[in-house]
């Protein structure tokens, strides 16, 4: 069963298209990472799934219903981001108990255990929390709500690396015991790729890739070596990325399937095969036309 079905969805703000003819499906109980650069449209898409905004064109269904303004979808969905605000008259523990009454599967024991583990002060006001603590607190709500669709938009903003690790671990552990559909967004894939099953890579409001993370890891390789030899080797093949890193030397990123047959000959040609991190690959895949930041400086 698909929890989310998105067909040709476009979201325009005036002339500007935040999302452009996006189509994908997300199956039940999968953890999917929404990856893209700043401004790629991740948040717009997640808010649309959560029912905050409606598509300009196309059809979006969540739990087989249009999510916008839908109370049933809202009851099964929680959307966590760092813009969440709570009344100043509530202390942190009040927030946990007040929000609890809205979500059928809310687990108070888990919420309180996490709250204590991250050593929050029960009497503090939410608006006084630091950026990282706010993210941590909001994430506790996200995990403890156990919503069939849990959406976490850049949940680790401001968290230090120890808390990040704990958070991802907590999320995964609770997911293993209580499977649910989880959407996580981040511009940094490396920190969360281990817990993901699928990844949806968004570039400029359009879908770039939607595949299991394991396949992404084996999608492409980097090859480095003499410019002439390398260019002959990859001739006529589509390159994901190309960079001149020293005089006469070239570095290219290419899909593995394109060079499967010739793979044995790479080393014989004096070329070097390098693994490529998924983070770098995502950057290259969503890169603007050719070149990198180095080109900016070369012109001078």
């Amino acid at each position: 069963m698909n929890v989310i079905q998105c067909r040709d969805v476009t979201k325009s703000y005036g002339q500007n298209k935040a999302l452009d003819r996006l189509s994908f499906e997300i199956g039940e109980n999968k953890i999917t990472g929404f990856i893209g650069r700043n401004g790629a449209g991740k948040t717009t898409l997640l808010k649309m799934i959560a029912g905050y905004i409606k598509p300009t064109q196309g059809e979006l269904q969540v739990f087989s219903r249009k999510p916008f303004n839908n109370l049933d979808v809202s009851a099964k969905t929680i959307f966590i981001d760092d813009n969440m605000t709570f009344p100043d008259s509530f202390r942190l523990t009040d927030i946990l108990s007040e929000v609890a009454s809205f979500y059928a599967a809310w687990n108070s024991n888990l919420a309180i255990a996490l709250f204590n583990y991250f050593s929050f002060d029960p009497n503090q006001a939410h608006s006084n929390l630091s950026k990282g603590s706010k993210s941590t607190f909001n994430s506790i709500i996200g995990i403890a709500s156990r919503c069939p669709l849990t959406i976490l938009d850049e949940p680790t903003t401001g968290m230090d690396s120890a808390v990040r690790k704990d958070f991802y671990k907590a999320l995964l552990k609770d997911y293993l015991e209580h499977p649910r559909t989880i959407l996580l967004s981040s511009h940094l894939l490396s920190e969360l790729e281990e817990i993901l099953e699928d990844i949806l890579l968004i570039d400029n409001g359009s879908k770039c890739l939607h595949l299991p993370v394991m396949e992404l890891r084996e999608l492409a390789v980097g090859i480095r070596g003499n410019e002439q030899a390398l260019l002959t080797f990859v001739e006529g093949k589509e390159l994901i990325y190309k960079e001149e890193f020293a005089k006469g030397s070239l570095y290219v990123v290419i899909k593995k399937e394109l060079i499967e047959q010739e793979f044995k000959h790479v080393r014989q040609n004096g070329l070097e095969v390098l693994p490529i991190s998924t983070d770098d690959l995502c950057v290259y895949l969503t890169g603007k036309t050719g070149g990198g930041i180095d080109d900016v400086f070369k012109r001078g």
Binding site: N69, S74, F79, V99, Y103
Partner: peptide
Amino acid sequence: KQYKQLENPLVTNSIS
């Protein structure tokens, strides 16, 4: 906007 935002973490729609 400020008051409406307070409702975002809850189960809600426009009518409720």
